[in-house]
């Protein structure tokens, strides 16, 4: 960017500010909203901003992977989870308790964030290696490192992913037949907190049950 394009430094700074602002705004959206689906959207925005930051950190491959894995896979999976459950938070009966809890959580978070920021700004980092490292974030270097130096973790993480697939299948299938549907309402003492959803659950739960429970002993 040595003046081949007019105002290229300003453009670079503007794009960096855009990436950082996107990350901050997405994180704030993800943790401040009450609807969970908006929170998932905030997580997507955060990951887009993080991809921009990774690009500025000389690793375009990781920027691509961030978008591909987080926005394309993780957030979509969470959206499926949101669709399959009822994730909106029940209204807490006492407002004072909720405000106190939010204030306490904000206090802890601000303390941790400020402490980490202070430590990372005051830390005696070895700045000698700042310009020494060549900016080699190429895919070839990563692939060589993955297949030579880090081949054992590479294989281990493939086993972890395989086990995660199998475990997710087993866990999600295991609870399909509802053993005691009549114990459902009795087990729900907090149904007073969301009274609007209670009458819809019983017919919705009773309809798909017959073809699912046919294998049951009932």
């Amino acid at each position: 960017m040595n003046a081949t394009f007019p105002f290229s430094e300003y453009l670079v700074t503007a794009v960096f500010a855009l990436a950082a602002g996107t990350t901050i705004a997405g994180a704030l959206i993800a943790v401040m909203t009450t609807r969970i689906i908006r929170s998932v959207g905030g997580l997507m925005i955060t990951c887009l901003g993080l991809a921009g930051l990774y690009y500025f950190l000389h690793s375009p491959f990781l920027a691509l992977m961030e978008i591909l894995i987080y926005v394309g896979a993780v957030c979509i999976t969470i959206v499926f989870g949101v669709m399959l459950s009822e994730p909106d938070e029940p209204a807490e009966p006492r407002r004072l308790t909720r405000t106190l809890r939010s204030a306490a959580a904000a206090l802890v978070a601000v303390l941790v964030g400020l402490g980490l920021a202070y430590l990372s700004l005051q830390g005696p980092w070895p700045t000698a290696a700042a310009g020494a490292a060549p900016a080699d974030g190429s895919v070839a270097a990563i692939g060589r490192a993955l297949l030579t130096t880090y081949s054992l973790p590479f294989e281990l993480i493939s086993i972890v992913l395989l086990l995660a697939i199998l475990g997710a299948l087993v866990i999600a299938r295991g609870g399909r037949h509802r053993a005691e549907p009549e114990a459902g309402p009795a087990r729900r003492p907090a149904a007073v907190s969301n009274p609007g959803t209670t009458p819809q659950i019983e017919p919705a739960g009773a309809d798909p049950v017959p073809e699912l429970v046919t294998t049951d002993s009932r």
Partner: peptide, 24 residues
Amino acid sequence: YLVLAAFLMGAGIYGFLRRRTLIG
């Protein structure tokens, strides 16, 4: 970048303490 990462950490901790559902 380090301050940005610290901010993300703080935001995540705030959400983790404040959310009352598992997906949050």
